[in-house]
């Protein structure tokens, strides 16, 4: 029982971290129709920038400055890269962001090398917040939860309660009408892209010390981010939150319990093959749930696409 509570908390941390990446990406996607392949690369840039800043000025300055720098880089990419490619259609845009992802990864390796970076959590948060039956819950993870929750509430407030939010929401669905009403839609696009990448950068800043800062970190998260926004529904903040938490818990619980497939099959009345070593189904019978954990989100995505193609919270056809 106590382990379930611990797992719920761990899944919450994973899910909220995913949410910080997805919230920006889902807004960018629905507004510009571009799958930003480089989104996870901005997450990596956030971690590396924050690491570099933290070696001179400490963690907290890095936390404040790095997302800003990443957001600025994102806005520049939109203004001088994507916007120029935009007139040639979606495929060139897609290829552009894909190339950008590769470029950023090589650049990071060129500057910082291929080794792990010693990016550490701040000493002020380096203690155990509480322990449940011997399972320590680090204060830093509490901090991650609070930051992500704060970001969600702030985004929700801006998008639904402010004038800027209303214009963004309108521009999501009817960009031409909004432009005709006298709003500077390209500027809105640039702003959303900048804020979206800044959020990814912030996720990187706080994930770097917990999950490791190394050149493969963008690749590791890259595909799962797309899966999450597809499940949640494009353009929906609530959808992004819901899907992120769902995937966070799904992966945590799948990895936590060593349930063997053999037990599940036997529960349903199947008998194991007598000659297991030579059985064609040997691989299926010897699998455990933690081994298939990483593909569960993809299975979920396929199921969602079949049953509800617009995603769980999506409002329009994609």
């Amino acid at each position: 029982m106590s382990l379930i509570i611990v797992n719920l908390l761990d899944g919450l941390v994973t899910g909220l971290l995913l949410f910080m990446l997805c919230s920006g990406l889902t807004l960018i996607f629905s507004m510009m129709g571009v799958l930003n392949f480089a989104h996870a690369s901005f997450y990596m840039l956030g971690a590396y920038f924050a690491y570099q800043i933290s070696t001179y000025l400490g963690f907290w300055v890095g936390l404040l400055v790095a997302p800003f720098v990443v957001g600025l880089a994102g806005a520049l990419v939109e203004r001088y890269g994507l916007r120029r490619v935009h007139k040639y259609g979606h495929v060139p845009e897609l290829i552009f962001t894909f190339g950008l992802a590769l470029l950023i990864e090589e650049l990071v390796q060129f500057i910082w090398g291929k080794s792990q970076m010693a990016y550490e959590q701040p000493p002020a948060l380096d203690f155990t917040a509480f322990a449940i039956a011997g399972n320590a819950f680090p204060a830093y993870k509490m901090f991650m939860i609070f930051i992500a929750m704060g970001i969600f509430l702030l985004l929700l407030y801006i998008l639904t309660r402010t004038r800027i939010g209303m214009i963004i929401q309108a521009a999501l669905s009817y960009p031409h009408t909004v432009q005709n009403l006298g709003h500077n839609v390209p500027l809105i696009f640039m702003g959303v892209f900048g804020v979206g990448t800044a959020l990814a950068g912030l996720a990187g800043v706080i994930a770097g010390p917990a999950l490791g800062t190394f050149p493969g970190m963008a690749f590791q998260l890259g595909s799962i981010v797309f899966v999450t926004i597809v499940i949640g529904g494009l353009g929906s903040l609530w959808g992004a939150l819901f899907a992120s938490l769902l995937i966070g818990w799904l992966q945590t619980f799948a990895a936590s319990y060593n349930i063997r497939f053999a037990d599940i099959f036997e529960f349903f009345g199947f008998t194991p093959p007598v000659d297991m070593a030579n059985s064609a189904l040997r691989d299926l019978w010897t699998l455990t749930v933690p081994q298939i954990g990483p593909i569960l989100p993809y299975l979920l995505m396929v199921a969602v696409l079949v049953i509800r193609p617009q995603g769980l919270f999506g409002r329009r056809e994609t």
């Binding site: 382990l3 611990v6 797992n7 761990d10 941390v13 994973t14 039956a133 011997g134 399972n135 320590a136 917990a210 999950l211 493969g216 590791q220 998260l221 799962i224 992966q251 945590t252 619980f253 799948a254 990895a255 936590s256 060593n258 455990t288 933690p290 081994q291 954990g293 990483p294």
Partner: peptide, 23 residues
Amino acid sequence: VGNELHPIGKVKDFTPYARKIVA
């Protein structure tokens, strides 16, 4: 008390594995 293999290079967060080891 445990003998398990995890996907190579694919695990983002090892916390669930760590919980099992502690438990």
